[in-house]
């Protein structure tokens, strides 16, 4: 297994987002593995707070000099907060993807889709196989 961090208390999507649940609010970011693969992140962009997203919808985009990735929400709901500080300092995503690099908070209408995501060990195995 590679040397990336995968906190045990989060859920993970195949598109490399992590999801943290607090009541009906889901915080979303990208994983350490993803930021390492992207390399120097130079730009992020999110949809606006107040926008609704469906499960599987894109809530934003992240760019390095050689790649651009869409960001997907596994849950439906309303975006209640975006981490706009990242727009000025996208390098935070490389430095602290699970902390200061959180991206959006969604008030989820249904938490059920999270059960279908991977746990930490599942995600590690998934990354190892790529």
């Amino acid at each position: 297994m590679g040397d990336w961090k995968t906190p045990a208390n989060l859920r993970y999507a195949e598109t490399d987002e992590w999801f943290a649940v607090d009541g009906d609010v889901v915080t979303i970011g990208i994983t350490d593995y993803a930021q390492d693969q992207l390399n120097d992140i130079v730009y992020v962009e999110f949809r606006d707070a107040g926008d609704d997203v469906d499960a599987g919808d894109s809530f934003g985009e992240v760019e390095s000099v050689k790649a651009a990735s869409e960001l997907y929400s596994a849950v439906a709901g309303e975006i209640i907060e975006v981490n706009s500080a990242l727009e000025d300092s996208p390098e935070t995503l490389n430095a602290d993807p699970f902390g200061a690099g959180w991206m959006v908070k969604v008030r989820a209408s249904d938490l059920a889709p999270l059960a279908g995501l991977m746990d930490a060990s599942g995600y590690d195995a998934y990354c190892d196989s790529r």
């Binding site: 120097d40 130079v42 730009y43 760019e63 000099v65 996208p90």
Partner: peptide, 10 residues
């Protein structure tokens, strides 16, 4: 020499 593409993009 090689160029700083990160700087150019930021």
């Amino acid at each position: 020499r090689r160029l700083d593409e990160v700087r150019a993009a930021k």
